[in-house]
Nucleic acid binder design. Structure first.
Lengths: 238, 238
DNA sequence: CGACTCGTTGAGCAAGGTCAAAGTACGTGG
DNA sequence: CCACGTACTTTGACCTTGCTCAACGAGTCG
């Protein structure tokens, strides 16, 4: 969930703490491990693998049996599910502090999605057995993960309800307001193609709806996916 | 998740163990507490409230701030979300052993759905503070809940993907096969009206699609929501 | 027996998906 | 730095799916 309100600390990489392994950084930033002491975090960091990946790299493919528990440290990652018929459905975009891959190791099922970087990205990976050990040893991590899963479940159910109870325009507007998160100007995190699949429509329909919203003066579209909300109140009414 | 494979023990109510409080039964049956010793279960049972509810009773309304953690012991409960516009969307049906209300106390948000009994039902309720204490005290409960949430998240995401990548007929068939769970004859757990909202369509469309499936000889519909799968293999092909 | 809710069937219509083509932004390599 | 190729985006025209409105039949509870 990128929309969480905790601040995203900038990655001023060179500071090294008392236990100064470079992997510590990765663990220190993450809310999931916020309840641990520095020494405990260091212990976690020992079994974590850090990777820096270029733009548009696949972290792991859909169907891989043993996807690691992955924590995004810097950059953005998109999660996409590909249906048997070949339809691409975007699930969500991860930002710094977000976690993916918990369900796979908790239920021992293979990854049901592809994870791809949208820009240069740094991640921390924990393999299944290490992650399991972690949860047993540190109840605070387990509890935070519980809360995280509950939040995500709520958000996914909300998403699902929208899909059946609102029409395309309403879903698009709801999504814009969610991404805006109070701001009046912002940039879409993905291509419009992906945005369309996220809200459950086609690029063509999305394009037409956005144009219509602009014609009526509710929004203003700029280059590079820039969006300006002219009348957020009116949008919220729909 | 009613489709889990753990057996549903019948409620032969009169056996009372060494700690024979009648509330023990309620706790003993539930997978969530399977990792606890009898003494520990007894402790849990002390803070649990048992209720027996007639058919079509509301457990708690949508929007209530402090819905209890509820465990179904006997009977069936349907979860429905009502959109601001008044649209009813059915989320899922709970059977014995299923839990609801964890997200509300984990995220401290109000209930986003109504829970209603479909038949006479016995439930166990734990209030927010008691449930919190429980998770702190018994890591095994916390871990089981974690797995339960992960399963549900997977299932909800699968449901969501279907909604965008499959047409109405495919969703209906997928749902029938899921409810069938290997059997060739079974009874629908809810009214067709609710089933329609669950798969994201209207009763009219559902009715037509089922009739079409019957015409082509894939299924046979009986009274009282009875369904017989004549050619499950062919159905799975769609 | 009557009122009510549920389920089915019919006819019409509109939202939005599909196909096609032209325009535009962006990263790459020379 | 510019030119090119690829992928993304937009617009147009068309057509299908499935929703809506309406009426009727059937089962159920009082």
């Amino acid at each position: 969930m990128s929309s969480r309100s905790e601040p995203r600390r900038s990655t001023s990489g060179s500071t090294r703490g008392p236990h100064g392994d470079h992997r510590d950084r990765c663990v220190a930033v993450v809310p999931l491990f916020a309840g641990l002491s520095p020494a405990e975090r260091h212990e976690v960091a020992r079994s974590a693998h850090q990777r820096t990946l270029p733009r548009l790299t696949v972290l792991y493919p859909q169907g891989s049996d043993d996807p690691p528990l992955t924590i995004v440290h810097r950059g953005r990652v998109k999660l996409v599910r590909i249906s048997p018929a070949g339809h691409e459905q975007m699930l969500r975009v991860l930002g710094p502090g977000d976690v993916v891959g918990e369900t796979a190791f908790l239920t021992s099922s293979p990854a049901d999605h592809v994870a791809t970087t949208l820009e240069e990205t740094e991640v921390c990976e924990l393999h299944r057995s290490d992650a399991r050990r972690l949860l047993e040893r540190f109840p605070s991590v387990s509890n935070r993960l519980l809360v995280e899963l509950a939040r995500r479940l709520e958000s996914t159910e909300r998403h699902l309800s929208r899909l059946t109870s609102q029409d395309t325009r309403q879903r698009i507007v709801a999504h814009l307001l969610e991404v805006a998160d109070g701001r009046t100007e912002f940039r879409l995190p993905t291509t419009k193609r992906d945005l369309a699949s996220l809200v459950g429509t086609t690029p063509e329909t999305l394009s037409r709806q956005l144009a219509a919203l602009q014609d009526r003066g509710w929004i203003r579209l700029g280059p590079r996916g820039a969006v300006k909300l002219v009348d957020a109140a009116a949008l919220a009414e729909l």
